[in-house]
């Protein structure tokens, strides 16, 4: 062992870090999603076409409709700062989903850019939920 131990340790640490990076998928960013507010999407929908993003907004009261017969197929609108976006949601809604409540939807814009297709939602109740805001999935 010609090298001092400290140097060996350093080399080991670098190799370890590189190994972790490679083993973990080499910079794969699955699970890292852009997080946008409704008004930004409405302002420039073409920027977000074809990508999975998260959209944050408030469910507009009175717009929630559920397709009869096949539960889990919802349409509603989300709004923020006066801008509205139509949502087609194809999954079960969480317990905390409510009209007027804040939601964060994961999904993609439809090719025309005027509808957001989502199948994953985190809902935050406007009140009484300050303790575990992300607990509902």
């Amino acid at each position: 062992m010609a090298l001092p131990l400290a140097t060996q340790l350093m080399i080991g640490a670098v190799i370890g870090a590189a190994a972790l990076y490679l083993v973990a998928g080499g910079g794969e960013t699955e699970g890292v999603l852009e997080y946008v507010y409704v008004e930004k999407v409405v302002a420039a929908p073409q920027t977000y076409l074809g990508r999975t993003i998260k959209v944050h907004g408030t469910v507009v009261p009175g717009t929630v409709k559920q397709k009869v017969g096949s539960s889990g197929d919802y349409t509603f609108e989300v709004e923020r700062e006066g801008k509205r976006l139509a949502v087609h949601f194809t999954n079960m809604v969480p317990d905390t989903f409510a009209e007027g409540g804040e939601v964060v939807l994961t999904g993609q814009l439809s090719p025309s850019g005027d509808r957001f297709d989502s199948d994953d939602m985190a809902a935050k109740c406007p009140s009484k939920y300050e303790e575990t805001p992300t607990a509902a999935r």
């Binding site: 972790l20 083993v23 973990a24 794969e28 699955e30 699970g31 890292v32 999603l33 852009e34 946008v36």
Partner: peptide, 15 residues
């Protein structure tokens, strides 16, 4: 702004 979800954590925390 981005969000970092469980798949990203799992990917690195697993090894």
């Amino acid at each position: 702004r981005v969000t970092i979800g469980p798949p990203f954590f799992n990917r690195y925390m697993r090894p």
